[in-house]
Design a protein around this nucleic acid. Structure first.
Lengths: 359, 359
DNA sequence: TTGTATGCGTTATCAA
DNA sequence: TTGATAACGCATACAA
C-alpha cells in the first residue's frame, strides 16, 4: 500500500480560487499594502476553507531568514542541558522562533577525523539549514585544548550567523560567550564545609581536560590548602554521571581518609551517597557530601543534597536574547548568569554536628 | 556596533569562480551525471576554498523534502520524554534527518480557544515548516476526551505528511500509533506486591482524565478487588511529578490505612518515599512503594525503587522507523513496544518480609 | 487598489 | 560532456 500524501496547496491556488492575484493574496497574508474588504474577505474565506498555510521554506528563500534557531549540545539526557533546552525553547518560542536540536553524542561516531567529528558535522548541518542563529552548549568548546579544526569551523559559521556559546570564553573564538561565574559556586560550597569544621575534604567527579572542571578543582585546591594539610590523593576526576559518584567514592576513600567530599554536581553526589549507604556509612553522620552544581530533584533525595544553585537556566534566556539582539544589530552585553547561591540541605549536616573541629 | 554577517556564498559564485556553469557545479555536488575530471577538480577546489555548502532551503523548494522531522511533546523536563527524544534523535540522525523540537507546555498560553492552543499551534508550525514527518508524544491526544478541534487539525496534517503518535490508539484519528502494552506493567507490579503478602494497597499519582492513568487504575482495581477488600479511598490521582508523590502520600494515608502503594511512576514514588521519611516511616519496613513506570536513576535512590521497565525508549526507534517506512511507501507495522519487565529493587522489600500475610 | 514580472538558490530538462 | 532555462512558492518593485 503506497501512501500518497495530498499535494500541498500553494498561494497560486488560493489566487485562482479567490479570483485575486498572488500579490493580493500575499498582501492579505502579510497584512501589507491595501486590499479592498471585498477581496480580502474572499481570500480569507478560501484560505480558511483550504486550510492553506504559506510555506516557510519558500518564504525563507526570499526573506533570508528561517525563523529557526539551532541548539547544539553533547547529551540531552544531562539535567544541566535539559534545563537549558527548556529555557531556550521557551524564550525562542516567545520571539517566534522554532528550534532545531542537535545532540552530538547521539551519533556515536568515532572522532577519527574532522569530517566525522559529530560536532563539526553539527556545524555543517546548521549552515545548510540556514538557521538564523545558533546556541552551542558545552562539548568540544569546553575542553582545555579546543580542537583547531573545530574552532576554525566555528569561527567560519560565526561569520554567517550569530553564534552564542554557553561556556567559558575561549580566546581565539569570535562567537558570543555566555558564562557562569567561574569560581564563586565552588568557593561557597567549600567554605560552607570548612565552616562546619571539616578538614579532610575530597573532590569527586568531573572530566579531566574540561575547563570548568579544572577551574573548579583549582579553586577547590586553593581554598583547601589555605585551611588544611592538602593531599592530592583526595582528588578523583572521572566524569559527570551517577556511576562516577558511585564508583568514584569508593576509590577515593581507598586512596585517603576523608570526612567530607565535594562532588562536581548533584548526580555524582547522589551516586556517592548511594554507594556509601551500601558500604554501611551514613551521610552526613559518617561523612558529608556537598555538590557544586544543583540539578533538579535533589531536594527529594535521602538525604537531600546541599548544593549550589548556579541559576543555569538563566543562561538559556540570556543566550537567546543575545541572538535576538544580534539580529537587530544591537551590541551584545557581556553576559554572566545570576550569582550562585548556596543551598543548604541535609547532606552536609547541620550546625550541631560542627561544634568540634572534624579531623 | 552593527554586525554585518557575510553574504552567503551560492552556487552561482562557485560557478563563476570555477568557470563552470551552475548545472555542472550542481552535478558534482550531487554526483549525478558526467563531469570531466578537469572541471570536477576545479569545482571541488573552489568549494573547498570558499567553504561553500548548498542551501537546504533552496533544495527543499525543489525537492519537496526538508530532511527534517518534528517532535512535539508537552514537557521536555519529564524523564519519560527525554529518553524518547534521545532515541528519536539518534535514529533520525542515522537516517539523515534533523529534528525540530516543540515543547507545547513551554508556551504557557491559556487554552482559551483553538487558535491559542499550544498544541494546535504546534501542528500549524509543523505544516509551515514543511517537515517530512512528525512524531507526537502525549499531550492532548492522551486525554480520555480528545479535543475535537485538535483532532481535526491532526487529521488534516496527517493528510499532508505522515504523523506518528506515541500513545494509545484513538479511534477517529488517522495517524499511525505506536503504543505500550496497556495493562501488563501494572499487572506485574501489583501481583508482585500481592505476592509479597500485602493486602492494603493504594494507588498514587497520575492525572484524572488521562487515558493511560485511567487504564492503569482500572487494571489496578481489577486485580486488587480480586484479592482484597477494595476501598476506593485507597486511590489518589493528582499528577506525575515529585511533588505529587510528596503531597499525595500524606493525603492518601490520612484517607485510609495502607501498607503498600503503587505509584504511577518512579518520580511520584520518590516523592512519596521522601515524605514518608520525613514522617518517620521507613520504606520498605513500614510501608512498601512500587512504581508502574521506570525512570532513569531510580536505582540510585535510597531505597532504590522496585518498578516496571516499560522499555519506553524502544518506542522512539519504532516511531522514526514507521516514519521512514511511510516515506518509502511501505506499509506500517502494528507497533507495540517491548514487553514490560518487573525490576525488583528495594522499595518493596524482599521475600523475608513476606512470610506472613500483611494486613 | 490590483496585477505582472522578477528574483531568491537549487535541480532537472533539454539542447548543443 | 556541458550550459541555458524553467520551475519550485513566495514577496516585492513596479505598472496600471
Amino acid at each position: 500500500m503506497l501512501i500518497t500524501k495530498k499535494h500541498d496547496i500553494t498561494i497560486k491556488e488560493i489566487s485562482k480560487l479567490s479570483g485575486a492575484s498572488t500579490s493580493t493574496v500575499s498582501r492579505v497574508l502579510n497584512e501589507s499594502g491595501y486590499v479592498s474588504t471585498e477581496k480580502r474577505q474572499a481570500i480569507e474565506k478560501v484560505i480558511r476553507e483550504t486550510n492553506y498555510r504559506p510555506s516557510m521554506i519558500a518564504r525563507s528563500l526570499h526573506s533570508k531568514q528561517t525563523k529557526t534557531l539551532a541548539v547544539v549540545l553533547p547529551d540531552v539526557s544531562n539535567p544541566y542541558f535539559i534545563g537549558l533546552i527548556e529555557e531556550i525553547e521557551h524564550v525562542s518560542e516567545g520571539y517566534g522562533y522554532t528550534l532545531i536540536l542537535i545532540n552530538t553524542m547521539s551519533t556515536g561516531a568515532d572522532k577519527m577525523n574532522a569530517v566525522d567529528d559529530p560536532e563539526v558535522k553539527a556545524l555543517h548541518t546548521i549552515q545548510e539549514k540556514h538557521v538564523d542563529g545558533a546556541v552551542i552548549i558545552g562539548g568540544e568548546i569546553d575542553h582545555v585544548n579546543v580542537d583547531s579544526q573545530y574552532l576554525k569551523t566555528l569561527n567560519e559559521l560565526n561569520k554567517q550567523i550569530p553564534v552564542v556559546i554557553i561556556a567559558q570564553k575561549v580566546e581565539n573564538c569570535d562567537c558570543i560567550f555566555v558564562q557562569r561565574h567561574i569560581n564563586t559556586g565552588m568557593r561557597l560550597i567549600v567554605q560552607h564545609i570548612l565552616s562546619l569544621g571539616y578538614r579532610k575534604i575530597g573532590f569527586l567527579g568531573g572530566k579531566p581536560g574540561v575547563r570548568v572542571t579544572e577551574q573548579r578543582l583549582a579553586e577547590f585546591e586553593k581554598l583547601v590548602k589555605m585551611y588544611t594539610d592538602y593531599d592530592d590523593k583526595s582528588v578523583l576526576l572521572n566524569d559527570y554521571y551517577l556511576k562516577d559518584g558511585y564508583q568514584g567514592i569508593e576509590k577515593l576513600l581507598n586512596q585517603t581518609d576523608l570526612n567530607a567530599v565535594v562532588a562536581i554536581n548533584d548526580r555524582v553526589a547522589l551516586g556517592a551517597v548511594r554507594r556509601l549507604h551500601e558500604m554501611g556509612m551514613n551521610v552526613p553522620k559518617d561523612i558529608v557530601i556537598g555538590s557544586a552544581d544543583q540539578f533538579p530533584d535533589s531536594d527529594y533525595y535521602i538525604p537531600s543534597i546541599t548544593t549550589i544553585n548556579q541559576h543555569n537556566n538563566s543562561l538559556g534566556k540570556i543566550a537567546v536574547e543575545q541572538l535576538i539582539r544580534s539580529f537587530n544589530g544591537q551590541p551584545f552585553l557581556t553576559a554572566e548568569s545570576e550569582f550562585p547561591d548556596l543551598v543548604i540541605r541535609e547532606s552536609c549536616g547541620e550546625k550541631k554536628y560542627s561544634n568540634v573541629l572534624k579531623k
